[in-house]
Computed example of a mutant assay.
Amino acid sequence: MSAPNKSYDPVEVEALKPEEVERMRDAALAAIAAAADLDALHEAKVAHTGDRSPLALANREIGALPPHAKADAGKRVGQARGAVNQALARRREELEAERDARVLVEEAVDVTLPYDRRPRGARHPLTTLTELIQDTFTAMGYQVAEGPEVEAEWLNFDALNLGPDHPARSMQDTFWVAGPDGSEESGVVLRTHTSPVQARTMLHSEPPIYVVCPGRTFRTDELDATHTPVFGQVEGLAVDEGISFADLKGTLEHFAAAMFGDDLERRWRPSYFPFTEPSAELDLQCFVCRGESVGNPDRPCRTCSSEGWIELGGCGVVNPRVLTACGIDPERYSGFAFGLGLERILMNRSGVEDMRDMVEGDVRFTLPFGMEI
């Protein structure tokens, strides 16, 4: 049996001849260069790179060639198509730049003209208040830290010295995230405070630590004039050598003066929190009745329930057990922590008498605060 005669080529395809491929390439390049706008360029693209374009049809003819001739023809057609695609990309950039420059001139808007929309927009006051509080603490050398709102049970409770039997872990206070089987034993909660951010910070940072942690928190409270199930908190944490309760008191006194001025009375009273020892509550004089409703049935005050004071938040010296759980030596370091309610701060700063006004979405509530940034 004789071997195949590879030198004999019985197939000659006109569209694959070098001069024909060059002609198709040059025609495509000329059409692309002549495109005056993006619409014309799109037409040139379809005509010279589409499925029915000359180069695409020539590429299909390669299959008719004998094996030893396919590589040379494929390289020749591939180079031509590549040159066409590169020319398309360059021309598109040029035309888009021309269009953008033309739009800037033809569609210019004078932003100094009076606006014609009613009503004018406004930021929510809790947003601007959060930023103001952050600025106040960063001016004192604190950093801003954030964390997830759906939190691990260990970080929300155990790391903060809230044992398994603590009442704050019951369903009356905490929103538990159901597990895959629908059970409540998922180990995941909607965070009840922003303290887990403090735990995360201590676990991943070395003292000295000075952070402030703003964010939303969730508890199963009834919505009324002074409570809401979804509320904002800003918590602070300082861990360093030699930190004492005096440092905590000085920090919060400075913050209260910056937020409310010196004319609103403040009081400290002892309290209990598992994650701080000793612990205290900071109260502000009721901004509505100024204490005149206390013992006065003729002038009841629904904002403070005629007690004369509104709780601002809790605080205290960080419990050594919390430092140990987060990997910090309590023999060397001490610290303080505090948690303040954003809504309570807004109520006292701006005279908002009912917390429900903050969450109902009525623009008549936000508009008076304007676009303060």
Rank of each mutant, 00 (worst) to 15 (best):
G335T: 08
I328V: 13
R302A: 15
V288F: 13
E292R: 13
E353K: 15
F336H: 09
C326W: 07
F336L: 04
F336V: 10
L346S: 12
S334Q: 11
C286D: 10
S334E: 03
G291V: 07
G335N: 05
A337D: 03
L284D: 02
G295W: 01
R290P: 05
V288A: 14
L284P: 04
V294A: 11
Q285T: 07
V294F: 10
E292V: 12
Y333C: 04
G335W: 00
V322Q: 10
C301F: 13
E292Y: 01
M347W: 01
L312W: 08
I345D: 02
L312P: 03
G308R: 06
V294I: 14
G335H: 05
V318G: 04
C304K: 13
C304I: 15
N348D: 04
S306W: 06
P300W: 01
G327T: 02
S305A: 14
A325V: 00
L284Y: 09
S350G: 02
S350L: 15
C326F: 09
L312C: 11
D298T: 14
P297D: 13
R299Y: 12
Y333D: 06
G316D: 08
L284T: 13
F287G: 00
G291H: 09
V294D: 12
W309C: 09
G316R: 06
G351R: 09
R290I: 02
T303M: 15
T303C: 08
D298V: 11
C315N: 13
F287T: 09
E311W: 06
V322S: 10
V322P: 07
R299H: 14
